[in-house]
Computed example of a mutant assay.
Amino acid sequence: MPPAPHSGLSLPAQVANELREAIIAGRLLPGTALAEVELAAAYSTSRNTLREALHQLSREGLASYVRNKGVEVRRLGVAEVRDLFKVRRTLELQALRSGAPLREEQAARMADAMDAAELAQGREDWRAFGTHSLRFHQCIVSLLASPLFDQFFANIAAQLRLAFAMAPDEERFQRPWVQRDRHLHALLGAEQPHEAAYAMANYLDDSERLLLELLSTRPSP
């Protein structure tokens, strides 16, 4: 199917957006081949357009060119995961400390993400659970009211989704977070930004520690 239209974006950028969203949704996993012919047909576009979109994903750290194999969804290492959490601490903690009031539509989007995560948890669909949890954290960054930060964090969310997918026991990694997301949401709703930032700092420390622990047990590809 052709990419959904995005006002002001070139066709390669639109295709790149669709592929990035597929990564965030967990439909494209680390190591998945990104074959030009099949993807050009799937998105009803030319191979040149698709190639430009793949170049963009490569620049964003979401795709890699592998010798004698072509392009594939990127596999992240420990150093990249640590760097992603540095970015999360910078943006998410700043968003909470800003004290920006939680607008009704932001609160609704957060609640929708948490409800969807709990439904995925009930189905034991931990891949979907991780995607909805990331949607919740994208809402937190949106408190900064910066379209540029929102766009940047969409790329960070996609890379985090790849890191989550590489954990050999994704259930063990994902299970703790929905109640802690609920707690953050409650603190924001109660207009307690400093308490929310403190809870988020602990959250991110625990999340990074557990993810790195699980990645250390992953067999070599």
Score class of each variant (00 low, 15 high):
residue 118 E to V: 12
residue 185 H to Y: 10
residue 124 E to V: 05
residue 138 Q to S: 09
residue 109 R to V: 03
residue 171 E to V: 01
residue 114 M to H: 01
residue 151 Q to S: 15
residue 119 L to Q: 14
residue 116 A to D: 12
residue 184 L to T: 09
residue 174 Q to A: 15
residue 141 V to Q: 11
residue 157 A to N: 12
residue 176 P to K: 06
residue 182 R to C: 03
residue 154 A to D: 13
residue 123 R to S: 08
residue 122 G to S: 13
residue 175 R to E: 09
residue 144 L to K: 08
residue 149 F to S: 13
residue 154 A to V: 01
residue 140 I to W: 01
residue 180 R to Q: 15
residue 166 M to V: 04
residue 128 A to N: 05
residue 114 M to D: 07
residue 132 H to N: 05
residue 159 Q to E: 06
residue 130 G to M: 12
residue 169 D to M: 07
residue 177 W to S: 11
residue 124 E to C: 11
residue 182 R to H: 13
residue 158 A to E: 03
residue 174 Q to Y: 00
residue 114 M to Q: 11
residue 170 E to Q: 14
residue 195 E to F: 00
residue 119 L to V: 14
residue 123 R to P: 01
residue 116 A to F: 01
residue 159 Q to V: 04
residue 174 Q to H: 14
residue 189 G to M: 09
residue 138 Q to A: 14
residue 173 F to G: 05
residue 113 A to S: 14
residue 126 W to K: 08
residue 192 Q to K: 15
residue 167 A to Q: 08
residue 190 A to L: 07
residue 132 H to S: 07
residue 125 D to K: 04
residue 197 A to N: 02
residue 155 N to R: 14
residue 183 H to A: 13
residue 160 L to Y: 01
residue 128 A to Q: 12
residue 141 V to E: 06
residue 110 M to Q: 14
residue 158 A to D: 06
residue 180 R to P: 01
residue 125 D to R: 07
residue 183 H to D: 04
residue 160 L to E: 12
residue 129 F to Y: 12
residue 110 M to S: 03
residue 201 A to Q: 13
residue 200 M to H: 03
residue 200 M to C: 13
residue 176 P to E: 04
residue 161 R to E: 03
residue 191 E to C: 08
residue 158 A to L: 07
residue 149 F to N: 09
residue 109 R to T: 05
residue 146 S to F: 08
residue 157 A to T: 07
residue 171 E to F: 10
residue 121 Q to H: 10
residue 118 E to L: 15
residue 189 G to A: 11
residue 160 L to I: 08
residue 114 M to Y: 02
residue 141 V to A: 15
residue 187 L to S: 03
residue 152 F to G: 10
residue 174 Q to T: 03
residue 167 A to T: 08
residue 161 R to W: 00
residue 139 C to L: 00
residue 142 S to G: 07
residue 120 A to V: 07
residue 162 L to V: 08
residue 137 H to N: 09
residue 128 A to T: 12
residue 177 W to T: 09
residue 190 A to Q: 14
residue 154 A to E: 10
residue 182 R to P: 00
residue 187 L to I: 03
residue 138 Q to W: 04
residue 200 M to L: 15
residue 141 V to N: 06
residue 148 L to F: 12
residue 134 L to T: 08
residue 149 F to E: 11
